[in-house]
Protein backbone atom coordinates (compact mmCIF):
# COMPACT_ATOMS: atom_id res chain seq x y z
CA UNK A 1 0.00 0.00 0.00
CA UNK A 2 2.84 2.38 0.91
CA UNK A 3 4.58 1.53 -2.34
CA UNK A 4 1.35 2.21 -4.23
CA UNK A 5 1.00 5.61 -2.60
CA UNK A 6 4.68 6.51 -2.99
CA UNK A 7 5.22 5.23 -6.53
CA UNK A 8 2.23 3.95 -8.49
CA UNK A 9 -0.33 6.58 -7.55
CA UNK A 10 1.95 9.57 -8.36
CA UNK A 11 2.85 7.91 -11.67
CA UNK A 12 -0.84 7.45 -12.54
CA UNK A 13 -1.51 11.08 -11.65
CA UNK A 14 1.47 12.21 -13.70
CA UNK A 15 0.29 10.23 -16.70
CA UNK A 16 -3.28 11.50 -16.50
CA UNK A 17 -2.40 15.15 -15.98
CA UNK A 18 0.42 14.99 -18.54
CA UNK A 19 -1.79 13.57 -21.28
CA UNK A 20 -4.68 15.88 -20.38
CA UNK A 21 -2.34 18.89 -20.37
CA UNK A 22 -1.01 18.02 -23.82
CA UNK A 23 -4.45 17.37 -25.29
CA UNK A 24 -5.85 20.56 -23.82
CA UNK A 25 -3.86 22.53 -26.38
CA UNK A 26 -5.84 20.95 -29.21
CA UNK A 27 -9.31 21.08 -27.63
CA UNK A 28 -10.99 24.48 -27.88
CA UNK A 29 -14.15 23.38 -26.03
CA UNK A 30 -15.06 25.55 -22.99
CA UNK A 31 -14.88 22.46 -20.76
CA UNK A 32 -11.22 22.07 -21.67
CA UNK A 33 -10.62 25.77 -20.99
CA UNK A 34 -12.44 25.51 -17.66
CA UNK A 35 -10.31 22.51 -16.70
CA UNK A 36 -7.17 24.49 -17.48
CA UNK A 37 -8.39 27.35 -15.30
CA UNK A 38 -9.19 24.93 -12.49
CA UNK A 39 -5.75 23.33 -12.66
CA UNK A 40 -4.09 26.73 -12.73
CA UNK A 41 -5.98 27.66 -9.56
CA UNK A 42 -4.82 24.43 -7.89
CA UNK A 43 -1.27 25.16 -8.92
CA UNK A 44 -1.48 28.59 -7.35
CA UNK A 45 -2.74 27.07 -4.10
CA UNK A 46 -0.06 24.36 -4.10
CA UNK A 47 2.63 26.99 -4.70
CA UNK A 48 1.31 28.93 -1.73
CA UNK A 49 1.57 25.88 0.54
CA UNK A 50 5.00 25.02 -0.83
CA UNK A 51 6.24 28.29 0.62
CA UNK A 52 5.52 26.87 4.10
CA UNK A 53 7.85 24.01 3.26
CA UNK A 54 10.54 26.47 2.24
CA UNK A 55 10.17 28.68 5.29
CA UNK A 56 10.30 25.62 7.56
CA UNK A 57 13.54 24.54 5.90
CA UNK A 58 15.02 28.03 6.23
CA UNK A 59 14.15 28.20 9.93
CA UNK A 60 15.48 24.72 10.58
CA UNK A 61 18.84 25.28 8.86
CA UNK A 62 19.50 28.58 10.59
CA UNK A 63 18.28 27.33 13.96
CA UNK A 64 20.75 24.45 13.68
CA UNK A 65 23.56 26.90 12.91
CA UNK A 66 22.73 29.09 15.89
CA UNK A 67 22.35 26.10 18.22
CA UNK A 68 25.70 24.56 17.25
CA UNK A 69 27.39 27.97 17.05
CA UNK A 70 29.02 27.15 13.72
CA UNK A 71 31.23 29.76 12.09
CA UNK A 72 29.08 32.66 10.89
CA UNK A 73 26.12 31.79 13.14
CA UNK A 74 25.61 35.50 13.68
CA UNK A 75 24.36 35.80 10.10
CA UNK A 76 21.70 33.23 10.89
CA UNK A 77 20.59 35.43 13.74
CA UNK A 78 20.33 38.33 11.27
CA UNK A 79 18.12 36.14 9.06
CA UNK A 80 15.76 35.44 11.96
CA UNK A 81 15.68 39.04 13.14
CA UNK A 82 15.08 40.59 9.72
CA UNK A 83 12.39 38.02 8.91
CA UNK A 84 10.61 38.63 12.22
CA UNK A 85 10.78 42.41 11.93
CA UNK A 86 9.45 42.38 8.35
CA UNK A 87 6.58 40.02 9.21
CA UNK A 88 5.58 41.95 12.36
CA UNK A 89 5.77 45.35 10.65
CA UNK A 90 3.96 43.98 7.59
CA UNK A 91 1.08 42.60 9.68
CA UNK A 92 0.99 45.83 11.74
CA UNK A 93 0.75 47.83 8.50
CA UNK A 94 -1.92 45.44 7.13
CA UNK A 95 0.18 44.90 4.05
CA UNK A 96 -0.19 48.54 3.00
CA UNK A 97 2.93 50.37 1.93
CA UNK A 98 1.90 53.98 1.62
CA UNK A 99 3.22 55.85 4.65
CA UNK A 100 3.70 52.73 6.77
CA UNK A 101 6.69 51.00 8.36
CA UNK A 102 6.32 48.21 5.83
CA UNK A 103 6.64 50.74 3.03
CA UNK A 104 9.73 52.15 4.76
CA UNK A 105 11.37 48.71 4.90
CA UNK A 106 10.43 48.16 1.25
CA UNK A 107 11.84 51.46 0.04
CA UNK A 108 14.89 51.89 2.22
CA UNK A 109 15.98 48.27 2.77
CA UNK A 110 14.70 45.94 0.05
CA UNK A 111 14.80 48.41 -2.83
CA UNK A 112 18.28 49.65 -1.92
CA UNK A 113 19.73 46.19 -1.30
CA UNK A 114 18.32 44.70 -4.48
CA UNK A 115 19.45 47.69 -6.50
CA UNK A 116 22.94 47.27 -5.09
CA UNK A 117 23.04 43.58 -6.00
CA UNK A 118 21.99 44.25 -9.57
CA UNK A 119 24.39 47.17 -9.89
CA UNK A 120 27.26 44.86 -8.94
CA UNK A 121 26.65 43.12 -12.23
CA UNK A 122 28.20 46.07 -14.07
CA UNK A 123 31.39 45.83 -12.01
CA UNK A 124 31.57 42.06 -12.33
CA UNK A 125 31.06 42.20 -16.10
CA UNK A 126 34.03 44.53 -16.38
CA UNK A 127 36.34 42.43 -14.23
CA UNK A 128 35.27 39.17 -15.89
CA UNK A 129 35.76 40.72 -19.33
CA UNK A 130 39.25 41.93 -18.42
CA UNK A 131 40.26 38.54 -17.05
CA UNK A 132 38.69 36.23 -19.60
CA UNK A 133 38.09 38.04 -22.92
CA UNK A 134 41.34 37.05 -24.57
CA UNK A 135 41.93 36.06 -28.16
CA UNK A 136 43.37 32.66 -27.19
CA UNK A 137 41.83 30.95 -30.23
CA UNK A 138 39.99 31.84 -33.42
CA UNK A 139 36.63 31.23 -31.71
CA UNK A 140 37.60 33.43 -28.78
CA UNK A 141 38.67 36.15 -31.23
CA UNK A 142 35.26 36.05 -32.95
CA UNK A 143 33.55 36.33 -29.55
CA UNK A 144 35.80 39.24 -28.69
CA UNK A 145 35.15 41.15 -31.90
CA UNK A 146 31.38 40.57 -31.65
CA UNK A 147 31.38 41.79 -28.04
CA UNK A 148 33.29 44.95 -28.92
CA UNK A 149 31.02 45.69 -31.89
CA UNK A 150 27.93 45.25 -29.73
CA UNK A 151 29.21 47.42 -26.91
CA UNK A 152 30.31 50.06 -29.39
CA UNK A 153 27.11 50.13 -31.40
CA UNK A 154 24.58 50.02 -28.58
CA UNK A 155 25.57 53.32 -26.98
CA UNK A 156 25.15 56.86 -28.33
CA UNK A 157 28.88 57.60 -28.12
CA UNK A 158 29.68 54.66 -30.40
CA UNK A 159 27.09 55.74 -32.93
CA UNK A 160 28.29 59.33 -32.68
CA UNK A 161 31.87 58.32 -33.48
CA UNK A 162 30.98 55.76 -36.17
CA UNK A 163 27.38 56.17 -37.39
CA UNK A 164 27.41 52.69 -38.96
CA UNK A 165 28.11 51.07 -35.59
CA UNK A 166 24.46 51.21 -34.53
CA UNK A 167 23.02 49.44 -37.58
CA UNK A 168 25.85 46.87 -37.47
CA UNK A 169 25.07 46.10 -33.80
CA UNK A 170 21.37 45.95 -34.68
CA UNK A 171 22.10 43.52 -37.51
CA UNK A 172 24.18 41.33 -35.19
CA UNK A 173 21.31 41.29 -32.72
CA UNK A 174 18.43 40.70 -35.08
CA UNK A 175 20.11 38.35 -37.57
CA UNK A 176 23.16 36.53 -36.17
CA UNK A 177 21.93 36.40 -32.58
CA UNK A 178 18.41 35.42 -33.62
CA UNK A 179 19.65 32.63 -35.87
CA UNK A 180 21.85 31.17 -33.14
CA UNK A 181 19.13 31.45 -30.55
CA UNK A 182 16.61 29.76 -32.81
CA UNK A 183 18.96 26.80 -33.19
CA UNK A 184 19.33 26.54 -29.43
CA UNK A 185 15.57 26.95 -28.97
CA UNK A 186 14.85 24.06 -31.33
CA UNK A 187 17.24 21.82 -29.42
CA UNK A 188 15.80 22.88 -26.08
CA UNK A 189 12.25 22.33 -27.28
CA UNK A 190 13.02 18.84 -28.56
CA UNK A 191 14.74 18.06 -25.29
CA UNK A 192 11.66 19.38 -23.51
CA UNK A 193 9.31 17.15 -25.45
CA UNK A 194 11.57 14.12 -24.92
CA UNK A 195 11.77 14.75 -21.19
CA UNK A 196 8.00 15.31 -20.98
CA UNK A 197 7.34 12.03 -22.82
CA UNK A 198 9.63 10.19 -20.41
CA UNK A 199 7.94 11.72 -17.37
CA UNK A 200 4.41 11.14 -18.68
CA UNK A 201 5.13 7.48 -19.42
CA UNK A 202 6.90 6.98 -16.10
CA UNK A 203 10.26 6.25 -17.72
CA UNK A 204 11.92 9.16 -15.93
CA UNK A 205 10.95 8.98 -12.27
CA UNK A 206 13.96 10.39 -10.47
CA UNK A 207 11.78 13.29 -9.32
CA UNK A 208 10.00 10.79 -7.10
CA UNK A 209 13.30 10.05 -5.40
CA UNK A 210 15.39 7.35 -7.07
CA UNK A 211 14.33 4.60 -9.40
CA UNK A 212 12.75 1.32 -8.53
Amino acid sequence: MILFLRRTFPLILTFLFGVAGALQYYIPHPVSEAALTEVSVWLRIILGFAMILGIASLCHVHYAKIRTRVAGWGYSLVVYLSMMITVVVGVWSRGQEEGTGFGWIYTYALLALQGTMFAMLGFFVASAAFRAFRARSKEAAVLLVAAILMMFGRVPLGEYLIPMAGPVAGWLLSVVNTAARRGILIGISLGGIAMSVKIIFGIERSYLGGRD
Binding site: I52, L53, S57, Y207, G209
Partner: peptide, 13 residues
Protein backbone atom coordinates in the same frame (compact mmCIF):
# COMPACT_ATOMS: atom_id res chain seq x y z
CA UNK B 1 17.36 26.34 -3.25
CA UNK B 2 15.11 29.08 -4.60
CA UNK B 3 12.05 26.90 -4.91
CA UNK B 4 10.61 24.85 -2.04
CA UNK B 5 9.20 22.15 -4.35
CA UNK B 6 12.56 21.70 -6.06
CA UNK B 7 14.10 21.49 -2.59
CA UNK B 8 11.71 18.73 -1.49
CA UNK B 9 12.39 16.72 -4.65
CA UNK B 10 16.16 17.18 -4.35
CA UNK B 11 16.05 15.96 -0.77
CA UNK B 12 14.50 12.73 -2.00
CA UNK B 13 16.99 12.40 -4.85
Amino acid sequence: HRDPIVMAICQEI
